[in-house]
Simulated scan of single mutants.
Amino acid sequence: MFCTSCGAQAGAGSAFCSQCGKPLAAAQPAVSLDKAGSQPMWRPGQMDEEMPDGVKGWSWGAFLLNWIWAIGNRTWIGLLAIIPYVGFLVAIWLGFKGREMAWRAGGWQNLDHFNRVQKNWSRWGVGIVLALFIFGIVSAVLIPAHMADERTTVADGTPYDDFDDILPATPGTRLERGRFNSAAVPLSASLNTSAGILKRTKGADGNYRMTVSGTPLFKGEDAQWQFPVRSFNQSNGREAILMASSGGRGNSCDTLFFFLLVDADRVSNTPLFGTCAAQGRYRQRGDTIALELPKTGGVSQILLRNGEVIEDGRTITLDKLNDPAR
Rank of each mutant, 00 (worst) to 15 (best):
V126C: 14
V309Y: 06
L217D: 02
R123G: 08
M210I: 11
C3L: 02
N306D: 14
M101C: 01
F273P: 02
L291A: 06
T75K: 00
G57C: 07
R314P: 03
E308P: 00
A195D: 09
T211D: 13
P44N: 11
E100C: 02
W69I: 08
E176M: 12
R305I: 06
P84G: 10
K202A: 13
T173Q: 15
G237W: 14
A25L: 15
K295F: 01
T255S: 03
V117I: 10
Q279D: 13
V138Q: 08
T315H: 06
D53R: 04
R238L: 03
T255R: 01
F114C: 02
G13F: 13
G214T: 09
T275P: 05
P228F: 12
K119H: 14
G127K: 12
F114V: 00
F16S: 11
P52Y: 07
E221P: 00
R230N: 08
A36Y: 10
S38A: 15
W103N: 07
C253H: 04
R249W: 05
L318P: 06
R285K: 15
F163G: 14
V185P: 09
L187R: 12
G106V: 09
L321S: 06
G72W: 04
L304S: 04
G7I: 03
A30W: 06
F273H: 06
A155K: 03
Y282N: 15
L256F: 05
D112T: 10
T152V: 13
A131H: 12
D319E: 03
P84K: 09
A278T: 01
D263S: 08
A8W: 07
M243N: 05
L65S: 09
T296H: 00
A148E: 09
L260G: 02
I197W: 04
W108P: 13
G37Q: 15
L80Y: 10
D319M: 01
G136T: 08
G127W: 14
V262E: 04
C6M: 05
Q39P: 04
N269C: 07
S182M: 08
F88P: 07
C6H: 00
F232Y: 14
L24F: 07
S246G: 01
Q279R: 09
N233C: 05
S213W: 03
G307D: 03
S246A: 09
T296Y: 07
R104P: 01
L111V: 10
V129M: 13
L191N: 08
N207A: 12
G72S: 02
P40V: 12
D164S: 15
L272M: 10
A8K: 05
A10E: 15
F259L: 09
I289R: 10
P171N: 15
L191E: 11
T255D: 03
T255P: 03
G7S: 01
W225N: 07
L321G: 04
G78K: 01
I82S: 02
D312K: 07
A244N: 03
L167H: 13
F16T: 12
T296Q: 02
W42T: 02
F63N: 00
A240K: 05
M41T: 11
H113R: 11
G313P: 08
T296N: 00
G307Q: 02
Q226N: 01
G250V: 08
L191A: 08
G206L: 05
P29D: 10
G57Y: 00
R283N: 14
A105C: 07
W124R: 07
T315V: 12
R314M: 06
M41K: 13
Q109M: 15
F2H: 09
A8S: 11
G313Q: 08
A244G: 01
S300W: 06
